[in-house]
Amino acid sequence: MKKIILYLSFCMLIAGSSSCKKYDNYPEPAETLTGSVTDIASGKGVQTETGSGTRVKLLELSWNDTPTPYYFYSEQDGSFKNTKIFKGNYKISVEGPFVPLVQNNASGTVTVDNSQVLNVAGTSHVDFKVEPFLNVEWVGEPVYNAMAGTVTASFKFSRGTANPAYQLDITDAYLFESPFPYVGNNNKDDRYSNQVSYSGASGSALLGQTINITTKDKLPAKTTLYFRVGARVAYGLNYYNYTEVKQIIIP
């Protein structure tokens, strides 16, 4: 009997004193970082795709100079908000379909660095004004062709940067269609979305001109579809620049 009590009290001692309550000795990430990526010329948000377009890069400088970067993606319109950031001192930049904020010369020296260093505490806000590779704009509204059951989009693209190093050939323009508003290169319906490729400088010859692209096949009836045009230059990860999303109700 005495032994059992001894064992029991031993067990209780172990269970009661070990494993404390705290899981971590560091405050949980509770700070909020909001911001935007806007076109320096027009002041409008740089359109991108969700999940694989513009992303925010955070370097936490409080502990060392070469931290492992932390990334998160922006919204479709270039704005971003993350409510689970650790308190700290960050070097923040963004990557996407625009002239890079951090540029190197051929020997690796950083020649341009428009990153921003910020103490993130409470709610912090950071804005990036960038030069998109291309401005892609609607010309009028996309038109539903009742006979063929297709949609024709009119748009034009123009250079968003005057920097000749980033005025590259336009490789293709793409009319994206999706049943969801988050439409883009990573979320499109291949049956209807239509791509037009340009070889060499033939795309650059179309700068500023109105271009039409029509969806490929007969669209389903009695539904709401979302459309968007993207165009891109062959730079880096071949990001698309986009128009805003338009909704069309197919009768």
Binding site: G108, A234, L237
Partner: peptide, 17 residues
Amino acid sequence: NKVNLFDGDKNLVCGIP
């Protein structure tokens, strides 16, 4: 190749001149 990546010590870890 068109993708270049330098590390902090100016080593071109992706890409060749």
